[in-house]
Amino acid sequence: MRRTRVRFAPSPTGPLHMGGVRTALYNYLYAKQNGGDFIIRIEDTDSNRFVPGAEAYIIESLKWCGIIPDEGVDENGKVVETPSEKHPHAPYRQSQRRGIYRKYAEQLIENGYAYYAFDTAEELEQARAEAESKGETFIYNHTTRGKLRNSLTISEEEVKRLLEERNDWTVRFKMPESTTVKMDDLIRGHIEVDSSTLDDKVLWKRADELPTYHLANIVDDHL
């Protein structure tokens, strides 16, 4: 049987709030009850909302609450950056794992599950405005991606040129069309979601060479 491993993954965008404390406590107690490990992971991929000092404040707050991680943070309260026997999956700060996420983003593209998007902020704003003028809501999905500038609609030569010349492109998930996603949740029970209602989420951004939550969270949980 695999050893129980649970994680609390705060974003350093501000102080730790009570909802975060509750989530950390539930994970910590679950790990201890099952003889497993409680891991801290810092999800600092939102560079626009990053708050200096928030990471240290969060870790110190957890310590004050008696919630001590088994992995991810050392005895001095510092996020571990170098792998060791006790911390084999370091670094535990997502901004230091860029290469890992880029590899998986490219793997998704190669397998047809994602694509490069070259739309500028102005072009996307224009698309939203046009949709609103018709009383519609713009969604970047299977109904609109074919009309926008991405690697699904332009030539390979153009894709290569834009990848080299531009620094504002993104990688988007290619959401399947008309697929019912089914899952059984421990709390909510059986859930079904129509993929047609979901958008093509941005997974990776060239501007800061960072993944979004949608990619980094899944990759780290998988690894």
Rank of each mutant, 00 (worst) to 15 (best):
A9S: 15
P10G: 10
T13E: 11
H17S: 13
H17M: 15
G20C: 06
R22S: 06
R22A: 10
T23I: 05
Y30T: 00
I39Y: 07
N48F: 05
F50M: 04
F50S: 05
P52Q: 11
G53E: 09
I59Y: 08
S61K: 08
D70N: 10
V73C: 04
D74W: 07
V80Q: 02
V80Y: 03
V80W: 02
P91A: 07
R102Q: 15
K103D: 14
L108V: 01
L108Q: 02
E110C: 02
N111R: 13
E122G: 02
E123L: 04
Q126N: 11
R128W: 12
R128A: 07
A129F: 02
A131W: 09
E132D: 05
E136M: 11
T137E: 12
N141F: 08
N141P: 05
T143H: 13
G146D: 06
T153A: 07
I154W: 15
E156I: 00
E156L: 12
E157S: 15
E157W: 04
E164S: 12
N167T: 09
W169C: 02
T170I: 14
R172H: 14
P176C: 05
P176A: 06
P176V: 09
P176Q: 08
T179H: 14
K182F: 07
K182V: 06
M183S: 12
D185Y: 07
L186Q: 08
R188S: 03
R188C: 00
I191N: 03
W204N: 03
K205C: 02
A207V: 03
L210F: 11
D220L: 11
